[in-house]
Design a protein around this nucleic acid. Structure first.
Lengths: 354, 354
DNA sequence: TTGAAAGCGATACCAT
DNA sequence: ATGGTATCGCTTTCAA
């Protein structure tokens, strides 16, 4: 691997000094370097395929154009990494590179991941989680511009901007979709109480029911868990009771798969006898289910893109950093919510005549 | 963010020169620096929490201790990123950092991702894919030590080492498991012909059948696709025929979900009436299916770890690079196979008495 | 308009 | 045993 061309090589070839090369290639040529020198320099740079060495640049400028992303388990888990995808898109478009460190669900690795990244002089930091969750913000994140995606600062005086999905509206619209189809007895299979998304989605559900003036039966809303078997067992209970709901909202798509399995086992046709709606729009699950799953899609890409946008802004213009803008308490100015999107497929239909 | 301590700060505090600091902190103190100076230096370094600036180190040493990982869609897709997880473990243990760039299934981004990484002076490169596949190795990968994980050099004269799962054995052992349970009429729902894993798994299946002296009915083995609906439709065909198989091997776990859905709809109990075996051991799918899915697990972590191990070896000892070792053609010395692992759960059982 | 020189932070060689 | 100095590649200030 022969060495790359340096600014000195370009300078020699163009018959000028290194400084001239630097000026011209950074657009500060006019008024400093003769027009024809400029042309020769640009030509030489092109000939040699010159591009400045980012390492030297970093050392000199004290900025690396690297954004560190720490994730709880986005990379390693089977969940869609689209938050990171969306973030990376935006970073790349601005000439930044992202480096991702996954702590694999081990919160004790947070600090060290951040330190490693900080040590490598990243210009900014982003923390991404698979599911909505409160985060004990690692100390190090306060030392450079930072932002949170799908999680939020758990401290009493939050300091970091965060981008999260609008779960309440998501929950409400899912139920509203069912209501519009004429359903009145709607069950809600929630996930686990440990996720802050769950109560929010339930609030949305209740709002929709209230607006339609339908009382919510308490035995129709319960924590089930997040997995296929949880959905299966939850649904078996619901569907073998004397009076069964005509529709079930699930807090994720895997629960919905379990529900579908239960329905099939009980000889219930979906959506003829039972409507099912999922949450997440998990790729390779929701769209190809039988029947294809109606679901509330999480705006992962948008969240990642929005978070990265905010971060880059802070980096280019440090005045933007919320830390300095004061006004203690409350997540007010720090929170950005992105709407979820209902994807209607085939697992929901009109309420059965009875 | 006040600036970090530099070697000069340490030198001043210890009352010595920068060179002494460098020597001592790099273990080359003995015989060069007085014992007590050494102590003072180490003390000062500890006091100031000194750690060398990696950027400056990179510039000086022309090695960054960064490994670039390019993936087709490991990050963005809902597939398990454990290859990357395993690779990263090993890298971290050796003081390397990985930076992952996902091309999101757009092969035209390969070269530019590699160039970006090379430009940033990564010490080595690894290409990771979600499924086994032939790869048009990006030119740039030949310029630094590189390795392939879950994919292989598609050229006529392969030059890069690669680590892949032993698919033939995987396919064989899946079928053997069923054979041991007494099944004789076993169907094989393969994925799509575009994946090189498919023919290999089928070869394994045929080997097992041949060893048991059972002829393979051609209508029992076919390309179905990879998704839930593909499994569903494939199984509906198989299970509504006059003579139905007592077991179905699926080329992945989502196919198996589809098969289970079909079985449930047809009133067939699993595994009493039908045994199902999956492939991949997809987390959050296989283990929590109803019934829990017996499946052939891919050794993702091991593959990533093995690949990274080979890569780091090449980096530390350039003589290891296969490019130089010659002996054209054949993937012989370049290929490392890692065995798959059968995970027995509840979707397989003894063949039904008839 | 141009080039020389200082630094960014670290290492390694070479005199002392 | 020790410290001065060149070097990695680049930008930027300052003199000419």
């Amino acid at each position: 691997m022969q060495r790359k061309a340096t600014a000195l090589d370009v300078a020699k070839r163009a018959g000028v000094s290194r400084s001239a090369v630097s000026l011209v290639l950074n657009g500060r040529g006019d008024g400093n370097v003769a027009k024809e020198s400029q042309d020769r320099i640009r030509q030489a740079a092109a000939d040699l395929k010159y591009s400045p060495n980012p390492i030297a640049l970093s050392l000199r400028n004290q900025r690396t154009r690297v954004i560190g992303i720490v994730s709880d388990e986005v990379v390693v888990s089977p969940f869609d990494g689209n938050i990171i995808g969306g973030a990376d898109d935006v970073a790349r478009a601005h000439g930044f590179v992202t480096v991702v460190m996954d702590t694999e669900r081990d919160a004790s690795r947070d600090e060290s991941a951040i330190e490693t990244l900080l040590d490598r002089q990243v210009d900014g930091l982003m923390y991404v989680t698979v599911g909505l969750k409160p985060l004990d913000v690692p100390q190090g994140m306060l030392r450079v511009p930072s932002v949170l995606a799908n999680c939020f600062d758990n401290s009493s005086a939050p300091r970091l901007r965060h981008v999260i999905p609008d779960e309440v509206t998501g929950g409400r619209e899912a139920t509203e979709h069912l209501l519009q189809l004429g359903h009145r007895d709607i069950a809600f299979l929630a996930g686990a109480a440990t996720s802050p998304a769950v109560p929010l989605r339930i609030v949305g559900h209740r709002e929709a029911m209230a607006k339609a003036a339908i009382p919510v039966r308490e035995d129709r809303v319960f924590m089930a868990g997040w997995d296929i078997n949880d959905g299966f067992h939850g649904a078996m209970g619901l569907l073998t009771a004397a009076e069964r709901p005509t529709a079930i909202v699930c807090a994720n798509d895997r629960l919905a798969v379990g529900v579908a399995l239960a329905a099939a086992r009980l000889g219930l046709a979906v959506p003829r006898d039972l409507s099912i709606i999922g949450y997440d729009d998990e790729s390779r699950i929701a769209a190809t289910m039988v029947p294809a799953l109606t679901t509330m899609a999480l705006p992962l890409r948008e969240m990642g893109a929005a978070a990265m946008g905010m971060l880059l802004e802070q980096i280019e213009d440090p005045a933007q950093r919320p830390a300095s803008s004061g006004a203690a308490g409350g997540t007010a100015g720090l929170e950005t919510m992105v709407p979820c999107r209902l994807v209607v497929r085939e697992s929901t239909g009109p309420v059965p005549a009875r």
